[in-house]
Design a protein around this nucleic acid. Structure first.
Lengths: 252, 252
DNA sequence: CGCAGCCTTGACCATTATCAACGCTGGTGG
DNA sequence: CCACCAGCGTTGATAATGGTCAAGGCTGCG
């Protein structure tokens, strides 16, 4: 089996210094884009991880894990993008995060998954049997602190998202989202004001607690105001970053 | 110094089995209500924690930590209640959680605090210097896994709250809140349908992403429908738990 | 070329916020 | 001891943000 070493981390909204690292560093062991935890783990630990990793592919739309099912596997994204979401009985959906290369799937997991995960692009992951992973975790303190560090980021990001969902207007949510996105996907390095949106309007809406119509109108409004330029449905450029930031913070 | 051993955990919305443990078990070392992690830590580790803990009191309204300040301390609540919140420049507030005895303050913390914390009742905490705590963490694998476990709960709770804020109606949010509350405060054991609300309507509103008026109207509506009975401003009884659950899930 | 899926735009509507008045309660001072 | 006041909560009237419904446009693929 050609296992790829799995960096284990899950970061949704990164502090600046993390985003930097994600671009500048490359994990020597993982051929691919692997960051953060990879960086902080000694090579022998990486080898251990390598030994229990199983590379798997998911096509767009395929489901990795389903909320409520027994949590037998943990994953590490090596390329592509996922959405993490929860559903209500009547079908309402809240996307709690988008994951990219380097992110870890399963931090918030107990005996069963508390969320569903689905590929929004063709995606490769390293899959771990949970039992194997936990066993390794026992023997590898560095792995534990790396995971704790990831959990910290996750929690901070979650609190930001709660502020967004509970107290920001539609326009503020959209602006905040556009500011958070660049740098999340290490496969697409930051470049001037370029933002790549791998998700549909519906997914943005379900992430921001809005409807697709409101997202569409919001983007149009930003475009009309000259704050952003829509290059295509899934590519845009931020023309006035400072104004966008002001809108996101409610100062405009 | 008469340090009290600090159980370290932070749980906001507990799985049932945790709530059970919080009521049934008592940490032998901590005199007070101390749970979860305490249970899982061997006595020698508890002694270590004890050695670096400093007991502190906060009166209602006092601020423990302020968003953006350098994170020099971590805390463990031993009695009372806190609110954790974030502010926007114009004063809008999102409360991201309420913490009670046994909960840990600082999981989501990097070099600076990502949130503010304030006592909503007279509260006692164990305070740790962050450096001491991290040093102990290095030497104590059990502490690391306990914290990771807490982080798991936190993340799952945060995802639930995102679903609530992003996709639930006002009535559904209020019902969900009433269902989550009992059992969070170990000082007030679960008893039939009794719910104690240590917070004001304004705090509920800022937690649920609503206004005080909407919260008030929502409670009145539940009362009128016979689902709950208001015993006083801060005490109520759930008369029809099943209906309340149905409302919370959007099935009514 | 045509269709399907996604996106945008417009008109209208509903939920919840806002503004305002009033009630209750607990604490203080006359 | 009573009266007043401040703070919090409730209720009502109105407004606005964002949702819903509907029609039409764009794009990419078969």
């Amino acid at each position: 089996m050609q296992a790829i070493v799995a960096p284990m981390l899950e970061l949704r909204s990164l502090p600046v210094e993390c985003a930097q690292r994600r671009r500048d560093s490359a994990c020597a062991t993982c051929g691919a884009r692997a960051f953060s935890v990879c960086d902080s783990l000694p090579p022998e630990d990486l080898d251990q991880l390598d030994a229990i990793a199983e590379q798997t592919r998911f096509a767009t739309g395929e489901v990795l894990v389903r909320e409520g099912e027994r949590a037998d596997h943990l994953f590490n994204v090596t390329s592509g993008a996922l959405r993490i979401y929860k559903l209500m009985p009547d079908g309402r959906r809240q996307i709690t995060g988008f994951l990219f290369a380097g992110d870890f799937v399963g931090l918030a997991t107990g005996p069963t998954y508390a969320f569903s995960a689905e590929a929004i692009e063709d995606t490769t992951v390293c899959r771990f049997r949970k039992a194997d992973y936990l066993a390794l975790l026992q023997e590898t303190p560095a792995l534990g602190s790396a995971l704790l560090e990831r959990a910290r980021h996750e929690l901070a990001a979650a609190q930001n998202q709660m502020l967004l969902l509970g107290r920001k207007s539609a326009q503020e949510r959209i602006a905040s989202f556009l500011l958070d996105l660049p740098g999340l996907d290490p496969a697409r390095p930051l470049e001037d004001g370029h933002v790549h949106l791998p998700m549909t309007r519906a997914e943005m809406a379900d992430y921001l607690g809005l409807t697709i119509e409101t997202v569409s109108r919001g983007l149009t409004k930003l475009k009309t105001a000259g704050v952003i330029r829509l290059l295509s449905l899934h590519e845009l450029r931020v023309e006035q970053p400072e104004r966008l930031r002001a809108i996101a913070e409610g100062e405009a």
